[in-house]
Nucleic acid binder design. Structure first.
Lengths: 151, 151
DNA sequence: GTGAATACCTAATTAAATTAGGCATCGCCT
DNA sequence: AGGCGATGCCTAATTTAATTAGGTATTCAC
C-alpha cells in the first residue's frame, strides 16, 4: 500500500516540503508528472495530512512550555474538552487510558500566564503540571526511519 | 520584531505551506517579491524552522501511540537520552522540571512492540506509560491565534 | 541637507508545475 | 489464447509561479 518510492518521497518532504518535483523525480528515478501523481494520491489517501511550516514558539514569544495532565471531574469531561479546544495556548492534546484524562502541551509567555490558564480549568478538573526545560530532545514526526531500519 | 503581515503569512503557511507567493501577496497586500523577501528573512531568523509535511502515523502502520514518562536512574541520564535519540519510534521528547525526567511520545505498531521498546530502557530508568486512545483533541502548532485573540 | 539603509514596487527572465497524449504491462474475463 | 480495461509510467507542450534586476519613496543618522 505504500511502496519504497512513496516512503522515499515522504522522507524527503518531511525534511523539506519545498523540494521541487524535478529534484524529487531524480531522487526516486521517475519523471516529475509521475511524482506529482504519487503526491496527489498520498494526499488523497490521507497519508500526507498537510503541507505546513514549523514555527519556533519562542519567536512568537512563547518562552515557556508545560505538559499538563488534566483529569476532568465527574460529568465535566465535555466542558473540559471544549475548553482545551478553544484556548489557543494549548498545543497537541491526547486522551490517554487509565483514569480518563488528557495530556496536553501548553505554550505560554510567562509563569503568570500558565497559572492564569490553569485557573480557568481548576474547578472542572484535577491537573498536574510539568514545566519543560531546555530544548526538546527530539521533535515531532512519526518515525519514518523505523520502517526501514531495525530498532 | 514580527509585524502584522508576518503573522498573517505564518498563519496562512501553517495551514498550507504550498500557498503561492502570488496568493500570499494578495492576502497581505504586497507584491510577490516582497513576500518572498519576508519569508526568506523569517527563515533566516529562525522563526520558520522548516517547511515540512504532516504524515498520518496510522498510514505508516503505527496504530498505537503512548506517552511515556522516563526517569533515568542516577548516573544514567546520558545513556537514556542517547537511547531516546536513537530509537526511531520516539517522537517528540521534552525534559521537564521536578525530578529530572523526560516525557516522550512513542509510535508503535502493537502493544508487543511497545513492551519491547520499554524493556530496552527498563534497567536504566523508571518509566510510566499511558496509552493514547482515539484521535488527538488538538494537534501540534504553537498558538498563532493566541497572539491576536484574547484568551 | 545629504548619504545610507529599508522596504517596497514593476517588468523581464528563469524555473517549476501541469496538462495532454501515448505506450507498455498486468490481471481478468470470455 | 485473445482482447479489454485499468495502472503507471513516459515525453513534449503549455501554463503558472518564483526569481532577478533595476528603480523609487521614506526614514534615520550624521
Amino acid at each position: 500500500m505504500l511502496d519504497e518510492l512513496d516512503r522515499k518521497l515522504l522522507e524527503i518532504l518531511v525534511k523539506d516540503s519545498r523540494t521541487s518535483l524535478k529534484v524529487l523525480a531524480q531522487q526516486v528515478g521517475l519523471s516529475s508528472p509521475s511524482v506529482s501523481e504519487r503526491l496527489r494520491r498520498l494526499e488523497e489517501r490521507g497519508v500526507i495530512r498537510a503541507f505546513t511550516i514549523e514555527i519556533d514558539p519562542q519567536a512568537l514569544g512563547f518562552s515557556l512550555q508545560a505538559i499538563v495532565r488534566i483529569r476532568p471531574l465527574p460529568g465535566k469531561l465535555h466542558i473540559v474538552q471544549k475548553l482545551i479546544e478553544e484556548i489557543p495556548e494549548f498545543g497537541e492534546c491526547d486522551k490517554v487510558t487509565g483514569d480518563d484524562c488528557f495530556v496536553a502541551r501548553l505554550f505560554v509567555r510567562s509563569i503568570g500566564e500558565l497559572d492564569h490558564l490553569l485557573d480557568r480549568i481548576a474547578d472542572k478538573a484535577e491537573t498536574s503540571t510539568a514545566i519543560i526545560k531546555g530544548q526538546p530532545i527530539r521533535r515531532r514526526p512519526p518515525p519514518l526511519e523505523a520502517l526501514t531500519g531495525r530498532s
